[in-house]
């Protein structure tokens, strides 16, 4: 619980920082003129560094985790996705893992009922995890309207679809509701389920709270404390053209939103959030299980100490001769 408290306090510190920044023109200049570029460079460089460090480490053994029939004789029905035999199977498996969270779908939980362990499906984590991530993606794509001019038609269509229920003015987006639902589930389960509370670290709570901070400030800005979107897009477009037009003052909510977002972007490559890139490199998922058909050599094939037959015979020659076994050297 201490860790949860510390992560909440850290969020409050960021909020206070944002409030302070909003009150000082010099800090506004730094926040909207300099920090965006710094943070973006940190994201690109940090992420590339992470991926390259992982990439430079070799994969000595071809041991993907599989759970289906391996490709074998022609009359044995193989499972091409659970146990991929080639690139196509691997791609199908990876695509389903990344876009549909395949492994989480088969999740189960166990309870002792009537003196036996009983397993039941546990698909809520899959549902809310997927909801959370997909709505994050949709929201990021919708924000492209601030960074492109003229706005890409697809983004416009996405916004129209997202707000098709036309609840309220401006329209309430379904992805916002979904994000809040997903976040609530993920946060509550981390706080309520004892096993998860036992293993959760500061980064786990903090990452969730940070994203929630971004979402909540964004929603407040959209529905309750509207901002001058024209001026906002002028600012964001000026970022794109490398000629930042720093506004005279920014709203408190916008300052908080920016602080949360920049913190998240800069922190992303150095935390568990880099799982976004790591999943592509996981040797247990992205390799085809074809050890029976192709020979794979360990790139750093370490020498192994072997015991030769000559050494064996040197030790046991007398005993072998005693029982009449032929020997190489008399």
């Amino acid at each position: 619980m201490m860790i949860l408290l510390i992560s909440v306090i850290t969020i409050f510190i960021i909020i206070l920082l944002a409030l302070g920044i909003a009150m000082s023109p010099a800090m506004v200049f730094i926040l909207t003129g300099i920090i965006p570029y710094v943070v973006f460079v940190i994201l690109l460089a940090g992420f590339a560094h992470r991926i390259i460090t992982w990439g430079r480490t070799p994969v000595p053994f071809r041991i993907p985790t599989t759970c289906g029939q391996e490709k074998s004789l022609p009359w044995i029905k193989a499972n091409p996705v659970e146990n991929p035999a080639g690139a196509l199977g691997v791609i199908a498996r990876m695509v389903q893992e990344i876009f549909l969270f395949r492994s989480l779908f088969r999740n189960t939980d166990v309870k002792i009922i009537g003196g036996r362990p009983v397993y039941d499906g546990a698909k809520w984590l899959w549902f809310f995890g997927l909801l959370f991530h997909v709505s994050l993606l949709i929201i990021v794509l919708r924000h492209l309207r601030f960074f492109t001019e003229p706005v890409i038609p697809c983004v416009g269509m996405l916004s129209a679809l997202d707000g098709f229920l036309e609840i309220g003015v401006p329209a309430l987006y379904l992805s916002d509701v979904a994000l809040l639902a997903g976040f609530t589930f993920l946060f509550l389960r981390r706080v309520i389920i004892p096993q998860l509370r036992y293993i959760s670290l500061f980064t786990d709570y903090f990452a969730l709270l940070l994203i929630a901070g971004v979402a909540v400030t964004g929603l407040l800005m959209r529905h309750f404390f509207p901002a001058d979107l024209n001026a906002l897009k002028t600012l964001t477009m000026s970022w794109i053209t490398f000629a930042p037009v720093v506004p005279e003052g920014i709203g408190v909510l916008f300052s908080m939103h920016l602080c949360f977002v920049f913190f998240l972007i800069a922190w992303l490559p150095f935390s568990k959030l880099a799982h976004a890139g790591g999943i592509f490199m996981s040797p247990m998922r992205n390799m085809a299980n074809n050890n029976r058909s192709l020979r794979h050599v360990n790139p750093w094939n370490a020498p192994v100490k072997v015991h030769t037959y000559a050494e064996y015979e040197d030790e046991f020659r007398d005993k072998m001769k005693a029982v009449g076994l032929p020997v190489e050297k008399e």
Binding site: L43, L44, F47, A48, I51, I52, F147, I152, G277
Partner: peptide, 19 residues
Amino acid sequence: IILGLVIFVLAITFPFWYG
């Protein structure tokens, strides 16, 4: 791996080079 990184960088910097 490099292809993946390039795709990622292009996607992230999309607003910069679009238009």
